[in-house]
Each structure stands twice: as structure tokens, then as C-alpha cells.
Design a binder for these strands. Structure first.
Lengths: 338, 338
DNA sequence: CTGAAAGCGCTTACAG
DNA sequence: CTGAAAGCGCTTACAG
């Protein structure tokens, strides 16, 4: 069932059917009506692939994220999808599971399918060389999300992670915590920026963060549990814990409880991202918001502009974070009140 | 940069290049080597769309779910993606936001892109007529997930929701709760099945569930908060709450706390799905597991079989649920111990 | 083992 | 306002 059939049934050429399909004005109303009637009667369905093939576009965008079970990435993926779908784009999506090689295969599939552009949340160890081969050489318009890749020049949307860390560090110091740990998360620019920020924030109040109290894990909840175990084996409980992310912080909550320690009472906890759960846990979780919906909106805007004009200089959009103080980081206040 | 260029550079026909691309054995090693060398040198990238166009397949599958911020659906989407990606399929994905019309547009895009098949988690009010128009008439192979649609004949994978409800109802009754509410979730077969099951489970121990204590809301966390508010306005606190899902149960936890009520102590709570958070909350959440990974695996299996042999009879795979008892539903035991 | 030709379902100048 | 022809980048019998 193709435009050939519709053309034959209507007694016009298939060029005319094509014009009707795309609502070109230069077809007479009568012809238009008869073509529509035939399409309806024959159950014709537009073949967008064939059209794309001819026009050399695809009206499809690729989205690669690591893991959508992480609420922050879920929010991000949905924000992007809403914008792109409403503009008529379809979304080819894949999950890298934070694995470089899986990510490479996903990008390959997207390039082979000639998506118009790709939005990528890089895996923890994606290199500039990886991206060079997978997206730069094929001249694929792309935007990186949340995690910058060193030495890779491209559009990027993320949050000011150093500032985010500083907000949490200053808050901890202002609350009076003297011994602070930074737990969880894979080695990455995002992690080292947040850690550096926490250090700087604490330092402003004369507090130091012991290097031994930084523990690297996966970005998953289990990473938080593992980090707590390592922390407790290494020495006494700190007064406050900065978690790599809220997702990790939820694992830290569970890990602490498993060890008989009450988060928010025996030790303060703060995270990053301000996922919806942060305000629903008990105690509610102090967190630095990193606005996935804004990141998603900015990313789709940058990508569409990049697709329209491929040769403009790479742009970096760095969004400001915001601290939300909640019950998990006010242990001292509470004990002083008691 | 096409197979024409590669053919010209190598001095063979483009048919030969095509054979090399698909690793057909009837090309000499020497020719194969020279073709590969030219592809490398020219930076040739396979155009899968053109190939698909010719072979009349797409090696792409559509996935429509309502909302991946719901951890159950996130798990489901990722389970499906792993299987399909490893088999060489790309995944065209969209989020319906539990909205019928958005779902219809997504399905339309997928059919127009000639995906080989579609996996659909229907919106709460999708009708058989909707599906007839969007997937049956275009003869699109498809599998429904988690929520059956009445009067629609197709492959389906889900969990035995009546049994799931019964497991929770029996557990509540066995724990000694006499006044039980069913909170949250949109009107749907899944909801009424779970409610019916809870009723049946309670009835086995002579406990009745008051119809006024069933409150319909959205499937989101906010739905749980809203349900608690409605519940408290309507009358005294019940002894136990069956939540439509764990996602809703997390909202119920927050709603109760906002009203100064301690979940798991002042009132028992149980949910469905057994999402990872269930064991990480405080108190940990009693839940009936509905195994998104298994649902995802079964769905991809059914879809691939349907694509291979479109005319087999529709099949229904109903997976058995399993109860996980945790801290949120043992309030009486605790108070008796005290 | 390799090549010439037809075709997948569209769109796009161009001519009338 | 409408049609004939070429072409998007592949694959697939078929012939040699």
C-alpha cells in the first residue's frame, strides 16, 4: 500500500499524491479531497523512512543515557522527549549502563540509522578519542549532558558542579560539622568537581576534608551501601557525609541503618540533584538541585540549533545549582535543642 | 560517501561492496580486504535506513511506556532494551504520560517509521478502538504490557494482579488488621484486579474492606499524598493501607508524615511491584513483587516470535507475584511486643 | 567470483 | 494545477 496505489485509485500521478501528503497548496481542493478519500479507503500509511531517505533528513534524534533507573536521568530523558516529540522528532534511545563499549555500539547504531543528532550522557570512562571516532568523524551533531569529557570540544549542558559542592560544603561547615566524608560515585569530572567544591566550601570556615574520607563507587544505590561499609571499616563515623548524588545518598541511608546508625541524627547527610524522593524520605534529604528538566530543555535547544547550523562554535551552558536544606543535615541543631 | 564511492575507489561494482558489507562468503579474500581498506580510508558509514528500505525490515522496535520516572517502568524499559539491543534492534521510544492522545501520536510515528513491532504499556484509558486504529489496522505486531485493554485481542505480558492483591490481603488479615484501605492509582483493570484480590485475601479471614476506603488517584507519587489527604478528611485512620503501587506507597509515606502519622507504626502500609526503593525506605516497605525484568524479557520474546510468525494466535503470559514482608506492615506485632 | 539492472517508497525540480 | 523522470543508498535475483 503505497502512494502508487493511492495514485492509481484516484487517477492522478504519485507526485500529486505526494503534494497532498505534505499539504502543498498548489493542488486543487477537488483532487485533494479525492486523494484523501482514497488514502482513507485503502488504509494507506505514510512511509516516513522513504521520505527521509529522499530528503536526507530523518526527523529522528538519538538519546544515550547510562541508566534510567536513576531518577535524575529518568527526569532528563523525559524532559528531552517532551520537547523533541512535540517538534515532530522521534527518539532513538539506548542505555549504556555506564559502559564505554556498550555506549560505542549504541552510537554506532544511531549513526548508521542517520539520526539528525545525538544527545549523550557519557559513561564514566568515555574518552575524547571514543567520541572522535563515534560522532566527530561521522560529523554527527551532538550535545553532551551532565558529564564533560576532557579534551572533547562540543556543545555541552551541565550544572556548575564546583559551585554545587561549595554550597553543600558551606552549609555543612555553617551547621558546625568538623569531620566530613565524600562518599560514592565513579571517578569522573563531575565527581572531582563536586568534591573540590565541598572542600572549598568547608575551607571557607576552616574545616578540612580528609582525602581518606573520599570513597569511589558506582553511581547506583548499591554504591552508597558499599561506600558506607568501606567508611566504617576505615575508622570512626564522621559528623557529616556528602553523597555523590541523591541516588547514592539513598543507598547511604540504607547502609547506615543496616549498621544501626540513624542518618540525620547520628550523622548528617547531603546529596546532589534534588530528585523527587529527596523530599519524601525520612529524614528528608538535604540536596543541591541540578534541574534535570532545565538541562533537558537546554540540550534539545542546543542540538536543534547545531543541526540547523552545524559549523557554529561549540557552546557550553552551565546552569547554577541551588541548595535545599532538609532534615538530614541538622543533627547538631537538634541535639543542641535536646 | 556511499557504497558507490567505495566501489569506485576499489574498482569493483557496488553489488560486490554490498556483499562484503554483509559478510557474504562468496567474495574473494583479496577483494574483501581491498573493500575494507577503502571503507576505512574513506570513512564510509553504512546507511542502515537504505538497507532496511530495500529489505522491507527496519531492525527497530517501538517502545511506548507512560512514565519512566516510575521505577517499575524504568526497570521494564531497561530490561527490554538490553535484550533487543543485543539482538541488533534499535529502540524507538516514547512516553505517553498516561495520556491517550499522546500515546496515539507516538504509535502513529512508530508505524510511519515502519518499526518491526511495538511494545506498549497502555495509558490508563486506552480503548480497544484506539488500538484497533493505531496498530491492528496497520497490521503492526505488538505486545501489551502490565495493563490489559478490555476487548483487545493481542499478545500480553503481565502479572496476576488478583493473586498479588490476595497475597497482600491475606498478609494484612494474618497480621490482625481489621480496617483496611486501598489507596491511589488510576481506574484500570490492574487497579480493580489488585483491589479485588486484597478484598478476597481479607475475606478469607473474615475481614471486610469498606468501599469508601478505596480512593482513586494518579499512578504518581503525588497520587499517594493526595489519597492520604482524602482519607484523613473522610474519617478515622485505618489500621492498614494497601497502596496501588510502591511508587504510590512512597507518596503515602510522605503524606502520612506530613499529617504527623508514623507509617509502619501508627498504620501499616503495603504496596505492589517491589521496586528497589522498597527495601531502602524507613521503615522498609512490604510489597508484592511483580518482576519487571521478567515481564520485559517475556515481552521481547513474544514480540520477536510475533514478528517472525504474525498469524499465530494471541498469547497471554501471566507471571506469578511474590510477597516480601518488611517493616512497614508489622505494627501490631511491634506494639504487642512493647 | 563479479557485474548490470531493477526496485524499496518516497520527493523534487522541470516541463507543460 | 498535474505528470514524467531522476534519484536517495542500499539489496537481490540473474547472468556470465
Amino acid at each position: 500500500m503505497t502512494i502508487n496505489d493511492v495514485a492509481a485509485a484516484t487517477g492522478v500521478s504519485r507526485a500529486t499524491v505526494s503534494l497532498v501528503l505534505r499539504d502543498e497548496p498548489r493542488v486543487s481542493d477537488e483532487t485533494r479531497r479525492r486523494v484523501h478519500e482514497a488514502m482513507e479507503r485503502l488504509g494507506y500509511v505514510y512511509d516516513r523512512r522513504a521520505a527521509n531517505m529522499r530528503t536526507q533528513r530523518s526527523m529522528t534524534v538519538g538519546l544515550v543515557v547510562t541508566d534510567v533507573r536513576n531518577p535524575y536521568f529518568a527526569e532528563l530523558a523525559m524532559a528531552l522527549e517532551v520537547v523533541l516529540h512535540d517538534l515532530g522528532y522521534a527518539l532513538l534511545q539506548g542505555y549504556s549502563h555506564d559502559d564505554r563499549e556498550r555506549e560505542a555500539r549504541l552510537l554506532e547504531v544511531m549513526v548508521e540509522n542517520r539520526v539528525d543528532g545525538v544527545v549523550l550522557l557519557p559513561s564514566k570512562d568515555t574518552t575524547a578519542a571514543d567520541l572522535h571516532q563515534r560522532v566527530v568523524l561521522p560529523r554527527m551533531p551532538h550535545v553532551l549532558l551532565a558529564r564533560p569529557v576532557v579534551n572533547h570540544e562540543s556543545d555541552y549542558v551541565g550544572v556548575d558542579n564546583v559551585k554545587a559542592g561549595r554550597l553543600l560544603g558551606e552549609h555543612f561547615a555553617a551547621e558546625g560539622y568538623g569531620r566530613v566524608a565524600f562518599l560514592g560515585g565513579p571517578r569522573s569530572t563531575a565527581r572531582s568537581d563536586r568534591l573540590r567544591g565541598v572542600r572549598a566550601g568547608l575551607a571557607r570556615h576552616g574545616v578540612k576534608l580528609d582525602a581518606k574520607l573520599s570513597i569511589v563507587t558506582s553511581a547506583e544505590r548499591g554504591g552508597g551501601i558499599a561506600a558506607v561499609q568501606a567508611l566504617l571499616e576505615a575508622g570512626p563515623l564522621p559528623e557529616a557525609i556528602a553523597a555523590y548524588s541523591d541516588n547514592v545518598a539513598l543507598g547511604i541511608f540504607a547502609g547506615l541503618r543496616a549498621a544501626g546508625i540513624d542518618p540525620g541524627r547520628d550523622v548528617a547527610v547531603g546529596g546532589f540533584d534534588d530528585i523527587p524522593e529527596a523530599s519524601l524520605t525520612h529524614p528528608s534529604l538535604t540536596s543541591v538541585a541540578t534541574f534535570p528538566d532545565r538541562v533537558g530543555n537546554e540540550a534539545s535547544r542546543l542540538l536543534l540549533e547545531r543541526i540547523a547550523t552545524p559549523d557554529i562554535d561549540p557552546r557550553r551552558v552551565i546552569l547554577p545549582p541551588a541548595l535545599s536544606v532538609r532534615g538530614s543535615s541538622t543533627t547538631l541543631r537538634r541535639s543542641q535543642a535536646a
